[in-house]
């Protein structure tokens, strides 16, 4: 089975191709540049370097968010359109779950994290259960301090992943002390090959109804709902 994986949900842009049991191509940048301009050329270049036609793909896997609304939509739009027009399977994976894979060989718990502004983060809790690395707390949008309060009660070493961790490192260290671990520079980019691998183990979804996972309503919609409840 040949899989194309696309992640444009945050600053890191990643494309990977797997063939059977092998990761045969992977492209990652961590740049503040426009995904809309760069992602299709990156897919084109990687596939042509690998000599793989779009038609010969079997499955398209996309990081469905959370992250930048616009970034998530670019990847999801391309993945949906490719899957639909090429009649291929479409699989969506949480962007946080992809990032969490960087910690799957660590002891203790794993926290992937994207900054969501106004001291909020998109995050989740992952770790081994019955020997299998998996989600322990659902992905969520939460104030960093509230999240750290919850994590503290676990009394276990916790590794943090993501390039945005640096923004919150002082408060993490202040609240968790020695229990907080930070990995190295190479541990913070979500890897599209991990996205592809996760995508292999999940069920394909209906293309037409596939939507990003924003983890929050559009601001106007939230306000409108609040005004209706009054």
């Amino acid at each position: 089975m040949k899989v194309l994986a696309i992640d444009t949900s945050n600053l890191v842009m990643g494309i990977a191709v797997t063939d059977g049991e092998k990761v045969i191509g992977e492209y990652i940048t961590n740049l503040k540049k426009n995904h809309s301009i760069r992602v299709m050329p990156a897919i084109h270049d990687l596939l042509s370097e690998l000599n793989i036609s779009p038609q010969s793909l079997d499955r398209i896997v996309v990081a469905r968010g959370p992250g930048s609304y616009t970034g998530v939509r670019i990847g999801v739009t391309i993945a949906k359109t490719l899957a639909w027009t090429l009649k291929k399977e479409l699989v969506g994976v949480s962007s946080l779950e992809v990032l969490a894979q960087n910690g799957k060989h660590f002891e203790g718990l794993v926290v992937p994290l994207f900054d969501a502004r106004r001291t909020q983060v998109y995050t989740g809790l992952y770790g081994k259960r019955n020997g299998v690395f998996q989600s322990i707390e659902p992905d969520q949008l939460i104030l960093i301090e509230d999240w750290l309060e919850q994590l503290k009660e676990r009394n276990l070493p916790i590794s943090f992943f993501g390039n945005d961790v640096a923004l919150h490192r002082p408060v993490i260290q202040e609240m968790l002390g020695e229990a907080a671990l930070f990995g190295s520079m190479a541990d913070h980019n979500p890897r599209p090959s991990e996205l592809a691998i996760l995508g292999l183990s999940k069920k394909p979804e209906e293309v037409h109804t596939f939507v990003p996972s924003y983890l929050q309503l559009a601001e106007a919609e939230a306000k409108w709902l609040a005004s209706k409840e009054k």
Partner: peptide, 24 residues
């Protein structure tokens, strides 16, 4: 209509929901 005008973020979300349906 409920917002009294087009809200860009809401419009973008609807486009993603509709695009392959409308293409087909």
């Amino acid at each position: 209509k409920r917002f009294g005008g087009v809200v860009p973020e809401v419009a973008s979300r609807h486009h993603v929901e509709q695009i392959t349906i409308v293409l087909e």
